Every structure is written in structure tokens, then in C-alpha cells.
Amino acid sequence: MDLTARLDEMELAIYKPSFRQSSGRANEVNYWVFDYPPEKELEVRDRIEYMKNKNQKGNDEVELVVFDLYDMIIDFLEQKNFLEKCFEFEKKRGLERITKAVNNSMKINDDDSLIVQYIREHTSENAIVFLTGIGKCYPILRSHKVLNNLHQAFVRCPVVMFFPGTYNEQELILFDEMKDDNYYRAFKLVK
């Protein structure tokens, strides 16, 4: 199935009442992954923007809330006046050290992660959450960290993570080479 058809199927699926029930298959958390070829990123972004604008007109009985994880990280760094410091720190210490520093400052590995707090505070009860920007923030933010921390604290509405790579309900493969084989409590939204 081509990407346009998969996006159409995804859009139909999320507006079904059964999709918005409090738990997923086998009483798992209601977390989903929509995977797509990384080279189709702009097409996926356009569809999400279209869906968000359409939803804001108030025709749907559910609110579509989109969180770009990369934008959340950049906003945090700018608010703390850390962004320029991060550039210098990366030059001196390398990507691995800056990744660790950003993760620590945002409490990425903690249950009270600033990303989880933000999502929880900015999501209504009657919502569907879209997580985007996964590819843009790699390796600073890993998708399994977001899903694992989020499902500990946020189960009141469905979450769909848009992943630029391949997901087979066991592992995520980013850019056809970087395998993230951590356990995921999420289901593939469209086959």
C-alpha cells in the first residue's frame, strides 16, 4: 500500500470510537506507531498539518493535539538560554556528551520527564495525541524513552508516534541501519 493510502487509512482509523477507548488490544496501553519511509517526511508533515487544521474547525468530537518533540527540546533549550551553550559544548566534548547533558537537564530518563509533564499539561481528556519530530531529534531523544516514560504517566487518551523508519511491533529501525530494539508497548497503526 502506498503512503497516501496508508495515511488515508490512518485518518479513518483514529476517528473511530473504538480507537479512542482507554486501552489498546489485550488491555495494553493505547499507544500506536505510524511508520513511513524517512524520505516521505514532508508528505507526512503535510498530512498531519492538514488534519490538525481540519480538526481545529470543530467538526470532530475529539481534539487532535500534535507535539513535535524536536521543537519541544529546542524551546526548552532556548527558554533556559542553553542553545548556544549546547553548540559550544558539542564542539568541545562531542555529541555523546551533549546528548547526555540535554537528557539530564530535561529529565528524559525520569518518570517526571519535562516532555511527559508538558504533554500531560497540554492535553485535554477528549484528545488524540500525535508525536512527531522523532527523526529530527535523534540521537538526543530516543523514541523508546518517550514511549516508556509517557505510558507510565499518561494513559487517558490514545497516542500515535510518527516514526520515520520501520516498525514491526518489536523494534524500530531508523534510517535503515540504526536499530532501536528496546521493548515497545505500542502497536503498528496501519500495516
Rank of each mutant, 00 (worst) to 15 (best):
Y70Q: 01
K92D: 11
N104K: 13
Y118W: 10
T99A: 15
E84D: 14
M178G: 00
A26G: 03
E171I: 04
Q21L: 11
P139A: 04
N30M: 04
A101I: 00
I74F: 00
F82R: 01
L150A: 06
E78Y: 03
I173M: 13
N53V: 04
S143P: 03
H122A: 05
N53H: 09
F76C: 00
Y36G: 02
M178I: 15
V29M: 03
I115P: 01
K145D: 09
H144N: 06
H144E: 14
N104A: 11
C137V: 14
E41G: 01
L95I: 13
K107N: 09
N126E: 12
N27S: 13
A186L: 08
K57F: 08
P158K: 09
P164V: 05
A186M: 10
E63C: 05
R156G: 12
P158G: 10
Y31A: 06
R20P: 08
I134N: 04
K191D: 14
Q79Y: 02
S105K: 13
T99L: 04
D46T: 06
K191Q: 12
F162M: 14
T132W: 03
K136S: 00
E11Y: 14
E121S: 13
R20V: 09
N182V: 06
P38I: 07
S124H: 09
V190N: 10
A13Y: 11
T132Q: 04
V65S: 12
A5C: 09
L147E: 13
E121Y: 10
L77V: 02
Q152G: 00
A127L: 03
F82K: 02
F163Y: 15
V160P: 02
K100I: 09
E125Q: 13
L69K: 01
R47M: 07
Q117E: 14
F154L: 06
E9S: 14
N27V: 07
I14Y: 04
L141Q: 00
Y31T: 07
S113I: 11
E43N: 10
I74S: 01
Y31R: 07
A186N: 08
Y31K: 08
R47D: 01
L95M: 12
D46M: 02
N59I: 08
L172A: 14
E169I: 05
R120A: 07
W32E: 01
Y118T: 15
L3T: 12
Q152K: 15
Y15A: 01
E171G: 01
R156C: 09
I134M: 10
V102A: 11
V33T: 05
S124I: 05
P139L: 00
T166E: 13
N168Y: 12
V159P: 05
A101M: 14
V33P: 03
A153F: 04
C157P: 05
S23T: 15
L114Y: 15
V116T: 12
F162K: 10
V33W: 00
D176A: 10
L77I: 00
V66C: 11
S124V: 10
T99Q: 15
Y70D: 03
E39K: 13
D2R: 08
K91E: 14
F34S: 02
Y184A: 07
A26F: 14
N126I: 08
D176T: 09
R20G: 11
Q21E: 14
R25Q: 10
S22V: 09
I74V: 15
E41D: 10
S143N: 07
F34L: 12
D112I: 04
